[in-house]
Simulated scan of single mutants.
Amino acid sequence: MVRNRILGTLLAIALLALPPVAQALGEPFYIGIASRMLVFALAAMSLDLILGYGGMVCFGHAAFIGIGAYVVGILGHHAAEETLLLGFIPGTSSGWITWPLAMLCAGIFAFLVGAVSIRTQGLYFIMITLAFAQMAYFFFVTLKGYGGDDGLRLPQRSQFSDLISLRDKTTFYYVALGVLTAVYLLLLRVTRSRFGMVLRGAKENERRMLHIGVPTYRYRLAAFTIAGALAGLAGALMANQANFVSPAMMHWTRSGELIVMVILGGVGSLLGPAIGAVAFLSLEEVLSAYTEHWQIALGPLLLAVIYFARRGIYGALVTRRVL
């Protein structure tokens, strides 16, 4: 326990010190890379709630990210053009409005997808979530007024106050780090509560949970909705980080990448998927400098993790008492 606290403190210090160290070394580029890692860590952590704790292999999680990103992008577009969305909704770049709205829209879509897909299991669940995600993908492709397949440039980043300017890379990094920390603490509390116990019980043996009178469908649907809303928040951050939104954000391949991040880091550990996101994106940055087919090297690594570290990178570190 003491070792974990010490290492946790050192990790927090390292994360807080990263921007000033990068600036001092004359490498501010790494602040942007680290911010991207934090955003994907948030997305992977939200997926772990339903995959790791609920046993729901969702192949459409990226759709919730894309919806959250498009809420920010579309409202920002109308704010810059000084036009009304649907003829009566004013555009805005206020993060106080767009970020909660991104979570709300993604959560509603997740609720609708979950209401149908959670009634099934296994391959049927995977295919239904994939089908909904592809429908969302092609829907945004058809929105030519918002760039269609080419995507939509964000006119300006979300605004909060004069003290918080997301246009500054360092400020955005600390905002993303704060959001990730808050979500981690929230999910930690959720997974350790009775709610989390029911999720794990339904994953292990749903029939037994039903026999003792637990309405597992409601719990799993609630978890699916929460995960979708948090993915929408990750999408809002992603839109601001890239200054751009496109249907590619919600393609099924992005959902596959998120699943790989969760498996690589450690399923059902919350912190593991965040580590997996960092490892995945680090490999992408390093290997893509040598070849555009960098995913070829990822395959053997993933197989090695599955065979030799079945609890992922995080599980291997814990087993060796590194964390």
Results as ranks from 00 to 15, higher is better:
L271H: 01
V278T: 07
T225P: 05
F125A: 08
S94P: 08
I50F: 10
I97M: 13
L47H: 11
F40T: 04
R167L: 06
S165E: 07
D168F: 04
G265P: 02
A309H: 12
R157F: 03
I164R: 03
L271V: 14
F138E: 11
G256P: 06
A277N: 13
V286N: 02
L166H: 01
H251F: 13
G122L: 13
F40W: 15
G276L: 11
Y174E: 08
Q241K: 08
G60Y: 10
L237A: 12
A316E: 14
P300R: 06
L281G: 01
G122H: 13
P20K: 13
R153D: 00
D48V: 10
Q241P: 00
R220P: 00
Y70C: 01
G276M: 09
F138V: 13
V57N: 11
V71S: 02
I13A: 13
N240R: 02
I275G: 03
M1W: 11
E257R: 00
I89N: 06
R36P: 00
L25D: 07
H61M: 10
Y137V: 01
I97K: 08
I118Q: 02
W99M: 15
V113K: 00
T98P: 01
D149K: 00
R321T: 06
M249Y: 11
I306H: 05
R200I: 10
I108Q: 05
V113S: 07
I33C: 00
L210I: 12
V72K: 00
F125D: 11
A279I: 05
K144H: 06
G32L: 09
V318T: 13
R218F: 09
G76D: 08
A231D: 08
Q134Y: 05
